[in-house]
Design a protein around this nucleic acid. Structure first.
Lengths: 183, 183
DNA sequence: TATAACGTTTAGTACAAACTAAACGTAGTA
DNA sequence: TACTACGTTTAGTTTGTACTAAACGTTATA
């Protein structure tokens, strides 16, 4: 591989590291995905180790979560103990998997937590102290408001997840045309 | 404040802590927002310190970023050096501000980084080595693909930011009705 | 059966980021 | 003018987490 290509790859990987870090994922994870994404052929664990400078153990764990998120796929061959990794290049598919695996759970937790607090407020009858009663009403109102917001997010995500690839193409047509930032 | 209300508040704040942490914000930030969100009256810095158990310095810095994200608002009174904080309760407004302040920037950075790598690949003429030439083509193809994806995200975010509150009501009507998870 | 080539697990380390405690600057107040 | 009551800044500490290095288990191969 010549000079420019190597530099382009490294720059790209640096970008992936940054993005990964920003979204709260390990930096190595971004680097690894970058390497696999640009590879002309399926990569083995040791090849990844060589390309990004990270130990085998770290690559092993990171590549596993990448696979869990549907960002890479493992390819196995008979009579060969090596694992070969290829990138998932359909980013909409990735987003859907990540939403399902990671965000969805957390949305549900958020919903449940607010609900739990709300249940505590509701559990008490009319408070003796009128000041407490007013506070209880405020709590109910505010918590209900947040709850319905979370519910809405939940519905939006659920809708996204329900979209099949055909409809995603529609999204792409909707937002893809207006390239307002061409270089 | 009676027992149940206090417990409800604490549970709620715990939830905010968790959510904040999940989204990569400081935990104290979530707690502080939770306290302000449930307060029946504007809170001063020292009152916040008392409600969430965090030192004044931490509250000072966290409340500032909360204000920058449009999640709370500072209220000043003449002849009073104290700062009074009230919550922003319009979550769609918050999302728009956060997108603008935080994610938008990062989307742009991501776009630029990929663009930069692409520029390096394009800078070199046809490679001497045919293998390098093939690799260069792959890089171009893959990087272009990611670039257009980022561009699309950028457009979606831009569209969201352009939505005024009137249209957001439409979103709410669209996704708000189907409450599939009532408790 | 020993050896080499895999991926995984684990114990220890390094680092970034959030927090605490305290000093600080400033503006009202006696 | 000293004193008090604020919010902010800073130096130091803590903590969680991602990483390294190395041991490990397993499977193919000589």
């Amino acid at each position: 591989m010549n000079q420019e290509l190597q530099q382009a790859q490294q720059t790209f990987i640096q970008g992936m590291i940054r993005i990964s870090h920003f979204w709260g994922f390990p930096k190595a994870m971004g680097a690894i995905y970058g390497a696999i994404y640009l590879a002309p052929a399926p990569l083995t664990l040791d090849e990844i180790v060589q390309q990004v400078s990270v130990t085998k153990g770290a690559v092993s764990t990171n590549v596993r979560t990448l696979e869990r998120l549907g960002m890479v796929h493992k390819q196995l061959q008979l009579g060969d103990r090596k694992d070969y990794y290829i990138p998932e290049t359909d980013f909409w598919k990735i987003i859907r998997t990540v939403l399902r695996e990671r965000e969805k759970q957390e949305f549900d937790v958020a919903l449940r937590t607010v609900d739990e607090s709300l249940a505590i407020v509701n559990s008490q009858g009319a408070a003796a102290d009128p000041e407490d009663a007013a506070l209880a009403r405020l709590y109910q109102e505010r918590m209900e408001k947040m709850k319905s917001f979370f519910n809405m997010l939940d519905n939006i995500v659920a809708t996204l997840l329900a979209l099949d690839e055909l409809r995603l193409n529609t999204v792409q047509r909707l937002f893809g045309k207006t390239t307002n930032k061409e270089s």
